[in-house]
Simulated scan of single mutants.
Amino acid sequence: MVLVVVMGVSGSGKSTVGSLLAKKLGWKFYDADDYHSDGNKLKMAKGIPLTDQDRIPWLGELHKIIREGLSSENIVLACSALKRVYRDILTNEESTALSQEVKKDEMPPSRPFFVHLDGSMELILQRLEKRKGHFMPSALLQSQFDTLEPLSAPEHFIIINVEKNVLDIVSEIERMLVKSNLEYLQ
């Protein structure tokens, strides 16, 4: 089974791109925002950035969902996954002091594929300021950019500029999955 994590800062289009990609591929879609605790949502709504400790239970829950889901289906997850350690927790990769706080069960064999939706602070800020009804205020965008750790080897990833049309982004991701020889059409 295959896991694709559509990641990036708030407002980069993770939920939109992830849900469209999952629909196009016939895969299961999860939006990580749906799994934040009420306390985390309240903290962010007040303009207070989450700490690593705030994120641990949330990442642990997402890890569990991914592990259980991958036993029977391909998954697209929309998740900020800003730090390497967060991505490691999600995918059961190398242990670090922070990730050791999450009980990890063996994941089904799968090499996660990360899609980083990247864009300028100015563009993403414009998007956030137009968004209604979301707990994440635009005031926290700088903290997200400050926290973001670029993807690097051995992570399996692509970076896509969010200035492109959403349907073009989804098509590009699909092409990269095929090019990467991920057997997602099973």
Rank of each mutant, 00 (worst) to 15 (best):
L3Q: 05
L3N: 06
V5Q: 01
V6T: 09
G8I: 03
V9P: 10
S10T: 11
S12D: 02
G13F: 00
S15D: 03
V17G: 06
G18M: 07
S19T: 10
S19H: 10
L21V: 05
A22P: 11
K24Q: 13
L25G: 01
G26K: 03
W27C: 04
K28P: 05
A32N: 09
Y35R: 07
D38Q: 14
N40S: 13
K41Y: 06
K41Q: 13
L42Q: 15
A45E: 12
K46G: 11
P49C: 06
L50G: 04
D54Y: 12
R55Q: 06
L59R: 08
G60Y: 08
G60R: 09
E61I: 03
L62R: 11
K64Q: 14
K64W: 10
R67N: 12
G69V: 02
G69Q: 08
S72N: 14
N74T: 01
L77I: 04
C79S: 10
S80W: 01
L82N: 02
K83V: 07
K83T: 08
K83E: 07
R87Q: 09
I89T: 11
T91P: 10
T91L: 08
E93L: 13
S95F: 15
S95L: 15
T96P: 07
A97Q: 13
S99W: 07
S99Y: 04
S99A: 09
V102K: 08
K104I: 09
K104Y: 09
E106A: 13
M107E: 04
M107Q: 11
M107R: 13
M107Y: 10
P108T: 11
S110M: 12
R111N: 15
F113N: 04
D118G: 01
G119Q: 03
M121K: 15
M121C: 09
E122F: 02
L123E: 12
L123N: 06
L123D: 09
L125P: 02
Q126K: 14
L128V: 01
E129Q: 14
K130D: 01
K130I: 02
K130L: 04
H134L: 05
H134R: 09
H134D: 03
A139S: 15
A139Q: 09
L141C: 03
L141W: 07
Q142R: 14
S143A: 12
F145E: 01
F145R: 01
F145K: 00
D146H: 05
L148N: 00
L148Y: 08
E155A: 08
H156Y: 09
F157V: 04
F157S: 03
I159M: 10
I159F: 01
N161T: 14
N161I: 10
E163S: 14
N165Y: 08
V166I: 15
D168E: 14
D168T: 12
I169H: 10
I169W: 11
V170I: 10
E172A: 11
I173H: 00
E174K: 13
R175D: 13
R175W: 04
M176P: 00
M176N: 14
L177C: 02
V178C: 06
V178G: 04
L182I: 12
L182K: 12
L185S: 13
